[in-house]
């Protein structure tokens, strides 16, 4: 069954998740205009200040306004997670669809490539990619996107396999329709619910990876603000400002929770299951 927004919103978890994600997305878009200060502007007279009417979330070790940095960081963090999701979606879904249609050699080759991706550890691969292509968030997220693509590949292939062998697909092929027509008309709509669930789940896990990488300083150049980078800075001054890590940490946790909540709801309303990356890795290791 194809998931509809109305059926997602009827679920309490789905409604809360969608509302939160829309709110975060809106903040990411209009955040720079809402920000009370320039997120890069330093103020030596207001270092490590707590929340106050002038700085609602306080300031960091360089006197920069935490709220302004959080709003500016939302855009970078979300765009990075989105990039990883889109790269994974394209690299996984397209060969997943084609593998059921182009024959055994293509299927065998893509399966082996995906198995190889599953065995690679995210952080090490991302570090290697940024070392190779340059230390940027785009490069790091390209690496993450490559490594999440097996989830999309397997989900797409599993959903497309029974459809590709169905009689209505054979009937369509007997009209002389080209492969793209048959895939777009008959196969893709059946695969879409499973891909939607995987996309929501992957966006959440990508955000965790983005935050982990930027926490470690990979893929981002200071002083650009990101949620992970803010978390790392605030932890260095934990004794001076114990509440400073709360805002970026909560945003990461709640956004990831909302992505997972949306994935669960999509799964419930469409009757498909999201793949487990842990199971994928265990399967590849076996």
């Amino acid at each position: 069954m194809r998931p509809r927004l109305s059926s997602v919103l009827r679920h309490r978890v789905g409604a809360v998740s969608v509302t939160f994600l829309v709110l975060v997305a809106v903040l990411a878009v209009i955040g720079p205009w809402l920000a009370p200060y320039d997120p890069l502007q330093q103020n030596q007279d207001a270092l490590l200040q707590g929340p106050s009417p002038d700085h609602l979330l306080g300031t960091d070790n360089l006197g920069r306004d935490e709220l302004s940095r959080l709003l500016a960081g939302s855009r970078l963090s979300l765009l990075a997670a989105l990039e990883a999701g889109v790269v994974g979606l394209v690299l996984g879904t397209v060969p997943g669809l084609l593998s059921v249609y182009l024959g055994r050699v293509f299927e065998w080759a893509t399966l082996r490539v995906m198995d190889a991706f599953v065995t690679l550890p995210f952080l090490v691969f991302a570090v290697a990619m940024t070392a190779l292509l340059g230390n940027g968030l785009t490069q790091a997220m390209l690496a993450v996107g490559i490594l999440v693509s097996p989830a999309f590949y397997r989900v797409t292939r599993a959903a497309a396999f029974p459809v590709a062998g169905s009689q209505y697909v054979e009937a369509a092929r007997l009209t002389g329709a080209p492969a793209w027509f048959v895939l777009a008309r008959h196969v893709w709509p059946k695969v879409l619910p499973a891909v939607a669930v995987t996309t929501a789940a992957t966006l959440g896990s990508s955000l965790v990876i983005v935050s982990s990488l930027t926490f470690l300083g990979i893929g981002i150049r200071p002083p650009e603000p990101t949620w992970g980078g803010m978390l790392a800075t605030s932890l260095e001054y934990l004794f001076q400002r114990p509440t400073a890590p709360l805002a970026p940490a909560l945003l990461v946790i709640l956004t990831v929770g909302a992505c997972n909540g949306l994935a669960d709801t999509l799964r419930d309303v469409s009757g498909v299951r999201a793949p487990s990356l842990r199971k994928e890795k265990a399967r590849a290791a076996a």
């Binding site: 169905s166 009689q167 209505y168 009937a171 008309r185 008959h186 059946k190």
Partner: peptide
């Protein structure tokens, strides 16, 4: 079987 040869969603 027409139930199988006609796309159920079309």
């Amino acid at each position: 079987d027409p139930l199988q040869s006609l796309d159920p969603d079309l």
